[in-house]
């Protein structure tokens, strides 16, 4: 083990970790918005739009992120849309994550009793108020464990960003291995940094799951 090497290249990993985190967080943020939008469309069974949403979910879930990224990275410029690698990474993650988030929010919505809507309506709430104050809070808290599992999954998926030359953790490790052949050190740093990113989310997930189960609204 070459500690000098580790010390020397630690800053590079730090930078890469920050990039991974940045792209991951922004991508996931968009994924959440897409997911919520899709879940609400499916909940209200909005004609036509719900079909588009369903098609998107199938497409997104049944193609690898790498393929989606290539599509965005190499495809968009061909039809005249200028992109940079970071935007592509974010878009790819949002495209993939949107469907996963949609699925977990959807199951959250499904867990809310239909008669809650009538209960709210009988108090004079309009459909926006019903969604905002009655349905959404219940649906979201049911979806929290699924949501956190998706966050972990999506953060891990960022490792394919290296394929479109983003200098994320994976890219940095591969690059350094190629340059200096310090495979062990590079991989240890790689694993260490991924753990650093993901372990807190994982622990949070475990904590939340316990709480949600304890809070379990059901009757």
């Amino acid at each position: 083990m070459n500690w000098e090497y580790i010390q020397k290249y630690l800053p590079m990993y730090e930078k890469a970790a920050i990039l991974t985190l940045k792209l991951g967080v922004i991508g996931i943020l968009f994924a959440v918005l897409i997911g919520l939008f899709c879940a609400v469309i499916l909940y209200y069974k909005v004609p036509v739009v719900k079909r588009i949403v369903a098609a998107y979910i199938e497409l997104s879930r049944n193609t690898p992120l790498l393929v989606q990224l290539f599509f965005i990275y190499y495809g968009l410029p061909k039809i005249g849309i200028a992109t940079n690698a970071e935007a592509c990474g974010i878009a790819g993650l949002a495209f993939l994550g949107g469907s996963y988030m949609a699925e977990s929010f959807r199951s959250g919505f499904e867990a809310v009793d239909k008669i809650q809507e009538e209960s709210a309506a009988s108090l004079g709430m309009n459909s926006y108020q019903t969604m905002r104050y009655v349905i959404l809070p219940q649906a979201v808290s049911v979806s929290v464990p699924g949501f956190l599992a998706n966050v972990i999954f999506l953060l891990k998926e960022t490792s394919v960003f290296s394929a479109i030359s983003l200098m994320d953790l994976m890219f940095t490790a591969k690059d350094l291995i190629g340059l200096y052949y310090k495979t062990t050190e590079s991989l240890i740093l790689l694993v260490g940094f991924y753990l650093l990113l993901l372990l807190p989310v994982s622990l949070l997930g475990m904590w939340v799951e316990r709480r949600v189960r304890y809070a379990g609204f059901g009757t």
Partner: peptide, 21 residues
Amino acid sequence: NLVQIRQKIGMVFQNYELFPH
């Protein structure tokens, strides 16, 4: 006008239908 009218009509359901959250 249903939203307005329902404010004047209270309804109590068989299974309470309180908001659990």
